[in-house]
Design a protein around this nucleic acid. Structure first.
Length: 403
RNA sequence: GGGUCGGUGCCCGAGUGGUUAAAGGGAACGGGCUGUAAACCCGUUGGCGUAAGCCUACGUUGGUUCGAAUCCAACCCGGCCCA
């Protein structure tokens, strides 16, 4: 029994940054094993953006482990809190969202999270925090805020930074951690998961639960996944992300574009490969980096699609980029057979966003038509059936003559 | 409420009457190098026009001027200090 708990602890600790506290966690796991009570594992989702990306999957994968150990995932859709905007990791106030937007985002979010989580009823509970937050009276809110001091709020790194820098902090933003803590009270969470950027919020949950007479939740933080640029946190707004709904080919391509030294991080956080195997893969003396990266790409794509699709994506990538051949699927563009200026043609094909950009690309020899490099933007091109227009390395269009 | 500083291109940020489609950086895009990369190097980055050139752009609206991002007025938004 004790051994079993130790085994669980080892599994749960992989890929985490901190656990507040480990003793409490193993105690509660033991308690659960004894009584058969499922632990309630909370994860708050911020529905301000509809798509989830690999950054989110780090914590979702951790959640999945808890589910596989028999516990219950409680997803909180922060519909109410989204109207405020979470200041985490932001240096500016986020816009508030309309209920409709939030509703839509939440739906998509849930669907996408299902790619990783066990969605069976016994293992998953989904709640909207408007359920209880919208019921609060001013007196309740004052009671809640009484559990926090301004000084403690300002200790928080993001607030401190913004305050010092002279950036605005809305008073309403102070309510966010408190509401999130209140969520923990309402769903009686045993454990709360979150990225390290959520540490403060999640720890506040412990205080709030204590204040409301509950046993404080255990807080587990997971690392923030670095985005494709290798510098900043993966996030949609920075455009350095891989979405879980990305096409297999895109997903693979994006992974191939990361720098070699990011591979270890991605392997550890996004795959289940054993640690010592990863060590071999990222050691250039033992494995050629390209080979390792292809494996990384295939493994990740396979997790969201399947093995065959992953193979295909890899083969296609090799064909187009390594060998410079045409991809299998090229979007077809209807076009009349009259001669047209090269720069206009690019615009017509939707390969550039303006005629001026088309000219620029052509002058920089970034455009190929049927394998022939075009250098004069004013050259008259007579479209023919099946003519292939290429811009850069990865934008293609195949012409289809219309009358 | 008073004082003061500020709002510039995708972002940050220089510019304080003409030579400014607006320095510099970031980012993105195109090319080179490569292992597909990353790093690095070169180039490009408002739109329309074959071109000459024209149009649009520096919070908003008006005004001064031959000419304004730059001066003035009002307004909107924000920072800081004082109350």
């Amino acid at each position: 029994m004790a051994q079993k708990i130790a085994e669980q602890m080892r599994l749960l600790k992989r890929g985490t940054v901190e656990i507040f506290t480990e003793d409490e966690l193993s105690e509660r796991l033991a308690d659960s094993a004894k009584t058969g009570r499922q632990l309630r594992i909370k994860l708050g989702l911020d529905p301000t953006s509809a798509d989830i990306h690999l950054g989110h999957t780090v914590v979702l994968r951790k959640m999945r482990q808890f589910q596989d150990l028999g516990h219950k995932a409680v997803l909180i859709i922060g519909d109410y809190t989204a109207r405020i905007g979470d200041p985490s990791g932001q240096n500016t106030t986020r816009p508030m969202l309309s209920p409709q937007q939030i509703e839509e985002n939440a739906k998509t979010y849930f669907q996408q999270a299902g790619k990783i989580l066990d969605t069976s009823e016994k293992k998953l509970e989904v709640r909207y925090n408007s359920e209880w937050l919208s019921e609060l009276r001013l007196a309740d809110i004052i009671k809640l805020t009484g559990n926090m001091t301004v000084a403690r709020m300002l200790e928080r790194d993001t607030f401190e930074l913004r305050h010092k820098k002279g950036d605005p902090i809305g008073v309403h933003e102070f309510l966010y951690p408190l509401m999130q803590g209140y969520d923990s009270v309402m769903i009686k969470s045993d454990v709360e998961l979150g990225g390290t950027d959520q540490t403060f919020n999640n720890l506040v949950g412990r205080d709030i639960q204590r204040a409301y007479g509950q046993k404080p939740q255990i807080v587990i933080t997971t690392p923030i996944l670095v985005g494709l640029d290798g510098k900043e946190k993966m996030s949609k707004s920075k455009g350095n992300y891989i979405g879980v709904t990305d096409q297999a080919g895109d997903m693979f391509g994006k992974i191939m574009s990361i720098s070699d030294d990011m591979m270890e991080n991605y392997f550890t956080l996004l795959t289940d490969l054993p640690t010592d195997e990863i060590k071999e893969l990222v050691n250039p003396k033992k494995t050629h980096p390209k080979k390792a990266k292809v494996l990384l790409g295939k493994t990740i794509v396979a997790a969201f699609y399947n093995e065959a699709t992953a193979q295909l994506a890899a083969a296609e990538f090799d064909k187009v980029f390594a060998q410079g051949q045409l991809p299998d699927e090229i979007p077809e563009i209807q076009i009349p057979p009259e001669p047209i200026m090269a720069s206009k043609l690019l615009l017509q094909c939707g390969l550039v966003s303006s005629g001026a950009e088309g000219k620029r690309i052509i002058k920089q020899s970034g455009c190929t038509i049927d394998g022939r490099k075009i250098s004069d933007p004013n050259e008259q091109i007579t479209p023919t059936e099946g003519m292939v227009v290429q811009v850069g390395k990865r934008k293609f269009a195949r012409l289809k003559i219309s009358n």
